[in-house]
Design a protein around this nucleic acid. Sequence first.
DNA 1: TTAAGTGTAATAAACACAATTACAGTTTTC
DNA 2: GAAAACTGTAATTGTGTTTATTACACTTAA
Lengths: 137, 137
Amino acid sequence: MVNQQFSFAVHILTVLAVTRRVVDSRTLARSVNTNPVVVRRLLLVLRAAGLIETQAGKNGGAQLARDPRRITLLQIYDAVDPRPVLALNERKAARHCFVSCNIKTVMALIADGAEAAVRKHLRGITLHRLQRKIRRS
Amino acid sequence: MVNQQFSFAVHILTVLAVTRRVVDSRTLARSVNTNPVVVRRLLLVLRAAGLIETQAGKNGGAQLARDPRRITLLQIYDAVDPRPVLALNERKAARHCFVSCNIKTVMALIADGAEAAVRKHLRGITLHRLQRKIRRS
DNA sequence: TTAAGTGTAATAAACACAATTACAGTTTTC
DNA sequence: GAAAACTGTAATTGTGTTTATTACACTTAA
């Protein structure tokens, strides 16, 4: 299955940015249309990345830890640490084949370039900008 | 991306570019370290994209259909048509939630941007350049 | 003290991919 | 024209990844 954690995380953080209050995992889960436990697991990694704060107990939940102007999509991307955009063939090479023995290094460079391109794109978008776009729609 | 078809395809085409001969699926499969049927299925899509020609029967196999200088990684990427680099949440929105109702459009724009960035990167690399890199390594 | 949350483990279900088997069809070569 | 060596392709199985679900200990506010 395709990993949707980045999508989930952006969605959750946008809700928190818009509401500016503590929101519980059940409410967030309904917005994303997934299970509260899935949300809570995601909240843990977002908290580890310093993007949100959580509170246990009654009236607990999550809220943004900083100004949405200072949260980029790249920070969210790094927090959830998704799989690389281009998957490499990790099996061992056929020793007798020249291409097989050397393609891995070259492909890794290409994948790194693709990754860098995506990261550059995401670095240019803040949560605040996203929030404004949503409001205008 | 989750699947390795792009990696497999680049590998296969590099072998064909280096050998400049008809190569059968069993040989290609050994180089990639996978199953000949997996290779043959990939060869079909590469042929459909006009990148290779195949020949059935004895001494059959695949060969490049054009100069490696005129094959870009983007063409290979498009041929195998991998899943998007950023996975969107495709479930239906929670009607009562403003963010939920509008995030999809915005996320789609972000994903499109990421896709475009990767495509731009891949468009700049030819099979010929790859081949030369491999030779030098 | 109770209600309403989080944190977290364990397990099941869903899904995507790749591997494998099997065999019909094609083409070369002898 | 028969055999050998391929491709094309369907069907099925195996494997790993991701999400969903259940359960419950722990925390906090009212």
